Computed example of a mutant assay.
Amino acid sequence: MTTDARLKQHVVRRELHSPKSGLAIVLALIAIVALAWVGTESVLAALGRPALLLSPSAMAAGARGLPSLQPGVLIAVGAVIAVIGLVLVIAALTPGRRGRHIIGAGSTAAVVNDEVIGSALVRTASSVAGISPDRAVAEVGQRSATIRLTPVSGVALDRAAVERAVAEAADGLGVTPAIRTRVVIDKKGKVGG
C-alpha cells in the first residue's frame, strides 16, 4: 500500500469514527469526585469533625454488613454493577461512529454528513411523490435510511414509484457503506399543498 493510500485511509477512518474522550472524561470526573469525597471524609474524621455524609467508620461498618443483607438485594445490586461494567467494556471495545459516509472511490473520496444524504433522498422522494419537501423527513443510519412522507389529505401516493426512485438515488450516490432504503407513508395526511 502506498503512502498516499495509507494517508487517505487514515483520514477517512478519522472522519468516520469519533473518539471516546467524552466517556473517559465523565468516568474520570466521577472517580475524582468519589475519591475527593472519601478523602474529605477521612480528613474530617482525623480532625474529629462531623462527617459530611458518612464517616470512614460508618463506611467500613456498612461494607462489613453487606453479607447480612437479603440475597435478592445482593443479587440485584450485583446485576446492576455487572450491567454497568458490561456497558463500559462494550463502549471501550467498539469504535465510536459519527453520522457520516464516504462518497467516491479510487484516488479521491468525500466524507459527507448523513444529513446531506438524507436531504438528497428527501428531495428525490418529494419530487416523485409530488409533495412539498417539508412533508418528507429522512433518518439516515450507518446502513439504512428511512424516508417518512406525509401526503396531502385525500391524495394517494404511489409507494412503488417513490421506493424505486429513492433506492435508485441511494445507489446513485455510491456511498460506503451502502444504504438500504425504506419509505414510510403516514396514514393520515395534512391539509394543504
Rank of each mutant, 00 (worst) to 15 (best):
A178M: 01
L93N: 06
H101N: 03
I84A: 08
T108E: 13
R98P: 02
M1G: 14
A51H: 05
T108D: 13
R143S: 03
V83T: 04
R164T: 04
V80I: 12
R64E: 15
K190Q: 14
M59E: 13
G174P: 08
M59R: 08
G39F: 05
R49K: 11
R100I: 02
E41C: 11
P67T: 15
A46D: 12
E115R: 12
M1D: 09
R98K: 03
V12D: 09
T181F: 03
L88T: 08
G48L: 08
G85V: 06
I32A: 14
P95L: 15
L69S: 06
D134M: 12
D4S: 12
H17A: 02
A129S: 10
L47N: 12
A36S: 15
I30K: 01
A169H: 03
S107W: 01
V175I: 03
S18C: 07
A76V: 14
I25N: 02
V112W: 12
A105R: 12
G62Q: 14
S153Y: 04
V73Q: 04
I32T: 14
K190N: 11
V122C: 12
R180L: 01
M1V: 15
A145K: 01
A125V: 05
R135G: 10
L44K: 09
T3Q: 06
G118I: 00
D158H: 10
I147G: 00
G106R: 09
S119D: 14
L52G: 07
R49A: 15
D186R: 02
A92H: 07
I185D: 05
G130I: 06
D114Y: 10
V111H: 08
A28V: 08
